[in-house]
C-alpha cells in the first residue's frame, strides 16, 4: 500500500491540517517510508488473535448518577480565544 499525493491531501483534510500543495509530495514520501516499515507486521500470524485495546485487565467502573460537576461557566470559557456571553464562538457556519 502506497500513499499518493491525493491520499495525503485527503488524510490531511480528515485531520484538519492544512498542507501546502508543494509539501504534499514530500509528506507522501515520509509517510510511505514509515508505512513501508510497518508492513513487516504482516509477518506475524494473528489468526484467531483478539485485538488488544486495553492492557488493564478489569471491568469498566460505573459512576453513580449524581450531579457532581459543572456550574462554572467562567472556568469553562476562560481560555477560549473567541466568544461572549458565556458562549464559545467560531466563524459563522452556514448550514
Amino acid at each position: 500500500m502506497s500513499l499518493d499525493k491525493a491520499t495525503v491531501a485527503k488524510v490531511a483534510n480528515l485531520a484538519r491540517i492544512k498542507i501546502e500543495e508543494k509539501d504534499l509530495e514530500p509528506m507522501a514520501a515520509e509517510l510511505n517510508n514509515i508505512l513501508g516499515w510497518v508492513e513487516q507486521l504482516g509477518e506475524v500470524d494473528t489468526d484467531n488473535v483478539e485485538p488488544m485495546t486495553s492492557v488493564a485487565e478489569m471491568r469498566l467502573r460505573w459512576r453513580a448518577d449524581e450531579v457532581t460537576d459543572g456550574g462554572y461557566v467562567e472556568d469553562v470559557v476562560a481560555n477560549a480565544p473567541g466568544g461572549e456571553d458565556g458562549y464559545f464562538a467560531v466563524p459563522k457556519v452556514i448550514e
Binding site: 507486521l41 506475524v44 494473528t46 488473535v49 485485538p51 488488544m52 485495546t53
Partner: peptide, 10 residues
C-alpha cells in the same frame, strides 16, 4: 493488525 500484534507481544 497492530492491536493483534500487540496482543501477541503481551
Amino acid at each position: 493488525k497492530a492491536q493483534k500484534v500487540r496482543a501477541r507481544i503481551a
